[in-house]
Amino acid sequence: MATITTDDVQHVATLARLEFNEEDIAEFTHQLARILDYIGKLNELDTTDVPPTSHPLTLRNVVKEDVAKSSYERDVVLDGAPSVEEGYFEVPKVIE
């Protein structure tokens, strides 16, 4: 069984900005452990010198021209924003 502890899960939750109560953490830990266990079968394969595939196609150098076009209207952009103030997206205080 893959060894993933509730501490590991809590750490990952922190990285992903998710929170769980104790019960859920235990459940998640169990589920993740099972899944990671299954995934572990990849270790049966020898992948020495096998290049990784990041893109299914071998495209290269895809670019666009440096042309400025008009941006979206601010009303459109801010429409549906949870909180707006003086044309800015408002968020709870960030301590910097």
């Binding site: 993933i4 590991d8 899960v9 750490h11 990952v12 939750a13 990285l15 992903a16 998710l18 998640f28 589920q31 993740l32 899944i35 990671l36 995934i39 990849l42 270790n43 394969l45 992948t47 096998v50 290049p51 990784p52 595939t53 990041s54």
Partner: peptide
Amino acid sequence: VKRRIMLGTYALSSGYYDAYYLKAQQVRTL
């Protein structure tokens, strides 16, 4: 969704990238 985000974050996290993500991309080649 949360489960997969957790799984994915774990697979990319420090110390696990080679064992999981890189390995998977290599098997993908195979």
